[in-house]
Design a protein around this nucleic acid. Structure first.
Length: 214
DNA sequence: ATCCCGAGGG
DNA sequence: CCCTCTGGAT
């Protein structure tokens, strides 16, 4: 784990992210709160590309919990079979749809407790929905943000909740809104898990991480 | 700590 | 071949 960076350095880093990409956005396709929730739930241990490929056929016929129930678990599996963990995900999405219809009038709830009570929805997925749909300040820590937070020292921590608090405490207020997507996109295309492209990294001179030579 | 689990990259 | 991908439940 990298040491915590000075405030001035963190400020510099996000100033560069902002200059390079003023309006970073997520890459998971969705059309409403329900399809956002389902897309994020499907994205566990899967690439957004794979999720988008599956939902391109799924969401036009099942963009509400009622339609999802009409499609049924087997019908859903036909659409998401190319995504990892598809059996658990299909079961969760169907049960989640039943609960939304029965207890929430078919709407996606806006509280963390209600979201996390849904099958297949944990802290990370709840944070994404709270942030992206309800615009509630919540920091989702996924594999990318966990890795980059520790490599760079922007928001280090030994577990997800520590990193989550580090984001809130250490990232300057003016960068909070876009920090999530800047870090995600940086992790996806530059600061990759296996062979980070340090030569192409716009914060290389500010980062303490150095790839170990094999 | 372990299981789930297909596609893509290296 | 092995590793990783916007994790969650047991």
């Amino acid at each position: 784990m990298a040491a915590q960076l000075p405030y001035a350095t963190i400020h510099q880093i996000f100033t560069r992210f902002q200059a390079a990409e003023p309006e970073p956005k997520g890459e998971l396709h969705h059309t409403n709160a329900f399809t956002l929730l389902v897309a994020v739930a499907l994205s566990a241990q899967a690439t957004d590309k794979g999720v988008n490929r599956a939902t391109a056929g799924l969401f036009p016929i099942a963009d509400t919990p009622e339609k999802m129930l009409a499609l049924g678990e087997e019908g859903l599996i036909d659409h998401i079979k190319t995504i990892g963990l598809y059996r658990n995900k299909a079961k969760n999405v169907i049960r989640l749809s039943e609960i939304l219809v029965r207890d929430y009038g078919g709407q996606v709830p806006s509280s963390r407790a209600a979201l996390q009570s849904l099958p297949g929805v944990g802290r990370k997925t709840a944070n994404v929905v709270l942030n992206m749909w309800w615009h509630i300040p919540a920091q989702a820590v996924d594999t990318h943000i966990f890795r980059i937070g520790n490599r760079t020292g922007i928001c280090p921590g030994k577990d997800v909740e520590t990193v989550e608090r580090a984001i809130e405490d250490q990232i300057p207020a003016e960068f909070q809104q876009h920090a999530h997507h800047w870090l995600i996109l940086h992790g996806r295309y530059i600061c990759t898990a296996r062979k980070p492209r340090c030569a192409d990294c716009l914060i290389h001179d500010l980062c303490p991480f150095e790839e170990k030579t094999a």
